[in-house]
């Protein structure tokens, strides 16, 4: 959204509400506009909950995916910002909880690192091989759509157009599958359930 016009906050909020109402009817342009305008609001809501800068992008991504899934619950007669902030706050709390779980593990890892004897080259190679094996196993356990997206786009580094042409999937679906796959892998390797 352009800042050039600089309309007041109330007008901006009404504009976002109108865009979302149009998006519910299938207006893609309005949808992309309201999502883009939502990013700073999501960041502000996440910061209010105490999310650190490094994690803001994760919260933005998760909130946008949630907005997409529950966009039918928005009532255009009510505040769009309140609706969005509630979803963003919830996703921020989820992120803080998962960070808390990760943090408790990382303390142990650090202690282990400090007290562990230096590994020789053979051991390091074996560990790398083990990690690669774990990654292959984690990718294999993903749902088919996500596995396909991460293998084709992430590992083989093929273009969206190529994969789309070959698999017949829409590029949008491929991108969302890639985001979800990365999230699942992150969760798995950071020790979340």
């Amino acid at each position: 959204m352009s800042d050039a016009a600089a309309p007041d906050g109330d007008t901006q909020e009404r504009q976002r509400a109108a865009w979302m109402a149009a998006a519910q009817g299938g207006d893609r342009r309005a949808y992309e506009r309201v999502l883009a305008a939502s990013v700073p609001l999501i960041r502000a809501a996440a910061r209010r909950q105490g999310v650190v800068v490094d994690q803001l992008d994760d919260v933005v991504q998760e909130t946008l995916l949630t907005v997409h899934r529950v966009r039918h619950t928005y009532d255009p007669s009510r505040s769009y910002d309140a609706w969005l902030s509630a979803l963003a706050s919830r996703r921020a709390i989820d992120a803080l909880r998962s960070q808390g779980r990760r943090g408790s593990r990382e303390v142990h890892d650090e202690l282990a690192y400090d007290t562990h004897a230096d590994a020789d080259d053979a051991t390091a190679a074996a560990e790398r091989e083990q990690e690669a094996g774990r990654l292959r196993e984690a990718i294999a356990s993903l749902p088919p759509g996500q596995r396909e997206a991460i293998e084709q786009l992430g590992l083989k580094e093929r273009s969206l157009a190529e994969v789309s042409a070959e698999t017949g999937r829409q590029t949008g679906a491929l991108k969302v599958n890639l985001h979800r796959a990365l999230k699942a892998l992150r969760a798995r390797f950071h020790g979340e359930p």
Partner: peptide, 26 residues
């Protein structure tokens, strides 16, 4: 500038947009 990740996600969500039936009032 905003990071690229939201931009690409917004674009892909836009591509998947379909009209939805609103939740009836409480």
């Amino acid at each position: 500038a905003e990071p690229r990740l939201p931009e690409s996600l917004i674009q892909s969500l836009g591509e998947q947009l379909t009209p939805v039936r609103r939740l009836p009032p409480a």
